[in-house]
Design a protein around this nucleic acid. Structure first.
Length: 654
RNA sequence: GCCACAGUAGCUCAGUGGUAGAGCACCCGAUUCGUAAUCGGGCGGUCAUCGGUUCAAUCCCGAUCUGUGGCUCCA
């Protein structure tokens, strides 16, 4: 007999070998209907599993977040079942549940087409209707090899089990059998709300040197509403895609003759400069900005270690005199800063020394990796290197973290911290890494903030703290970073003079806040759906005279705003008021001032706030100017981004 | 770089083996308007580039470039 303890503390005593579903059924028939799996001592098991151990027993219903993972994994098998029926030649790879759904990888002679996708989805519905049970079997390695004799990818996977005592299990649903650890839902009919999303290429086992498989992405949910909401979310993020908004709001362009390099329009340049000015303002006291060369001899990269580890990502430049590609555009600012620090003597009293640089960087990214503003070949960072004594690390990390988090807060972005440790590809001794990781971790702990671990994800020269920022629709982006570096000081022979009048080795911290301006702007565009707070808006106020009689007053108002530093424009075109209002809304101008007879006579403005519709405030010009000036000065998050359901969002921007 | 898909006017897109069309934008004219598209007229394209098949190619085929979804990588 075994004893199962339910969440309410009650216990059930059943013979060993009783099926999980019978235990669930004995608790309640309705409960059995609503259950997807069970968990015994935290391990998720099929309902068909014979129970052999006593312990905590939890029924996994749709209230349990683990139910969705089980369902999606079963969905992957159902997908493979359908694909195998229509394309018997397809060899199966892996098919896991992922964050938003599931995928399955296939090796096929002829790649799948979008038409295939529709056919597979239809076939899946048949498999679901047939209500095949998922049957688990435990087999020996030899038996498994027998069963998957026609599936080379599975055979390769089975090789990993050689000499291991791990249990090998297979799952069968109707005609399809897969090598799988499980667990699964009881039968195929459990999958009700799903959608196949896309076809993509994926290397077998993620290895560039291996063959390309065809991956089918799909999503599935327990409830129809959840699926609909998810599909709606996909649609929403498509609408706020920075590449789409960048075009309709006229912020930037990309030309085929300059792949991966951004052409900023006047409005985009204003946005960019406003951001940069903000960073400069925040850094004016404790940091020293320097401008440094873009092109360097390879000697610098040999010293920094980039020539060996990073050269394939660098744009090499031909030196006509030597006939060699022994010059390179800089892919990062670090060596420039080290060069400068090393060029003169420093006292321990002057540390920490913080250099910042906004120079243009070039990285030769794979052509297929380029995407809008988020992945480019030419970009700029708000890059900072801090040179400090080892005893200053904790205080400096706290200082930088406060700086970075305060910056994000201005935009209404929240950040999660990740601590990343030594990667496989690295320079420096293990002793040095032990010291660096220990010091950075201690500094991080001293802030009292929560953080996650990212083992093996550090920079090749040191461990780091990454700042993952969550935007307004819940997507995470890695932006800022604090990286501790004991290697560069050695390589560049950096020193400072201590109070004992001898040379000491400083430590270097690499810090970026925005990541890159390009990518940060992409995130801001999507975060605000193009409706920037007034301080960031390229155009802050648009003045619209109702008729040409009021052009003069309107022009005077614009001039007055410009004198106050407000980015104001006049729209006195010979178009209807409705037309011009609509255009201002589509362009997401935060404030529109309508000037007619009443306003001209009373020296007021009829203020239309972006996204607020017909509702308008009539207020004295002076009050309006004071309000806008104050909002800009405080970088207030106003006016709020309009709800995505406003007409401006559903109509095509002109 | 690899796999798949795409490229038609400034933008969004339709279309055909017999050298192209809409809406918006832009220009001109009328209209002087009270909060999301006034009306009329006009301008505008080597159908991404190069090559092939064909009597004939924007359309079929191939290569190249660029973009998109992924893989890999990463700010």
């Amino acid at each position: 007999m075994i004893v199962l303890t339910l969440p309410d503390g009650s216990t059930r005593e059943v013979p060993a070998g009783t099926l999980a579903r019978d235990v669930v059924g004995s608790i309640g028939a309705r409960l059995l209907q609503a259950s997807y799996a069970v968990a015994v001592n935290g391990e998720v098991l099929d309902l068909m599993t014979p129970l052999r151990a006593s312990g905590a027993f939890v029924v996994i219903t749709d209230k349990d977040p683990r139910a969705l993972g089980v369902l999606r994994h079963s969905g992957a098998h159902i997908l493979a079942t359908a694909v195998r029926r229509l394309r018997p030649d397809a060899k199966i790879g892996f098919g896991p549940a992922i964050e938003d759904g599931f995928y399955y990888d296939f090796e096929v002679e002829k790649p799948f087409t979008p038409d295939d996708l529709a056919a597979f989805e239809a076939e899946m519905k048949k498999v679901i209707a047939e209500k095949y049970p998922f049957v688990r079997e435990e087999v020996t390695l030899a038996q498994a090899r027998e069963r998957f004799v026609d599936d080379p990818l599975k055979l390769e996977r089975l090789d990993d089990f050689e000499g291991s005592d791990e249990v090998i299990s297979t799952y069968t649903d109707g005609p399809f059998i897969d090598l799988c650890r499980g667990p699964h839902v009881p039968d195929t009919s459990y999958l009700k709300h799903f959608k196949l999303l896309s076809i993509a290429g994926a290397y077998w086992r993620g290895d560039v040197k291996r063959q390309m498989l065809q991956r089918i992405y799909a999503t599935a949910f327990l409830k129809k509403d959840d699926l609909d909401a998810h599909l709606h979310r996909i649609e929403e993020s498509r609408k706020r895609d920075h590449r789409v908004l960048g075009k309709s709001l006229d912020l930037f362009q990309l030309f085929p003759v300059a792949p991966g390099a951004v052409f900023w329009t006047p409005k985009g340049t204003t946005l960019y400069n406003t951001l940069e000015a903000f960073v400069r303002e925040r850094q004016q006291d404790a940091f020293k900005e320097i401008k440094t060369p873009l092109l360097y001899n390879k000697a610098l990269w040999e010293q920094s270690g980039h020539w060996g580890k990073y050269r394939e990502n660098m744009f090499l430049v031909l030196d006509n005199e030597t006939g060699e590609h022994d010059m390179s555009l800089k892919p990062m600012n670090c060596p420039s800063h080290h060069l400068y620090f090393a060029s003169h003597k420093h006292s321990y009293r002057d540390l920490p020394m913080r250099y910042v640089t906004f120079d243009v960087l070039h990285r030769n990214e794979l052509s297929g990796a380029l995407s809008g503003l988020t992945r480019v070949r030419q970009f700029a960072q708000d890059d900072c290197h801090v040179y400090l004594r080892e005893d200053q690390i904790a205080a400096e990390v706290q200082f930088l973290m406060t700086f970075i988090l305060g910056y994000y807060e201005t935009f209404g972005l929240t950040a999660r911290l990740k601590f990343a440790t030594r990667p496989e590809q690295r320079i420096g001794s293990d002793e040095l890494w032990d010291r660096a990781e220990g010091a950075l971790r201690a500094a991080l702990e001293s802030t009292g903030r929560e953080y996650e671990m990212k083992e093996g994800d550090g920079a090749f020269y040191g461990p780091k703290i990454d700042f993952d920022v969550t935007d307004s629709i819940g997507r995470a982006w890695q932006l800022g970073t604090i990286q501790l570096d004991y290697n560069a000081p050695e390589r560049f022979d950096l020193t400072y003079t201590g109070d004992d009048n001898t040379a000491h080795r400083p430590v270097v911290i690499h810090r970026a806040v925005s990541g890159s301006f390009e990518r940060f702007i992409a995130i801001l565009i999507e975060h605000f759906a193009g409706a920037f707070p007034v301080w960031l808006s390229p155009e802050q106020v648009r003045v619209i005279p109702i008729a040409s009689d009021y052009n003069e007053q309107s022009e005077a108002l614009v001039q007055r705003m410009k004198a106050l530093g407000i980015r104001a424009t006049l729209d006195a075109r010979n178009e209807t008021l409705n037309y011009r209002i609509r255009e201002g809304e589509v362009q997401k101008v935060p404030y529109m001032c309508v000037i007619g007879r009443r306003e001209a006579e009373e020296n007021t403005v009829a203020l239309r706030i972006r996204g607020a519709g017909k509702k308008q405030d009539i207020l004295p010009v002076d009050d309006f100017l004071a309000r806008v000036t104050e909002e800009i000065r405080t970088r207030a998050l106003v006016p709020a981004a309009p709800d995505a359901s406003t007409p401006a969002e559903t109509e095509t921007a002109s």
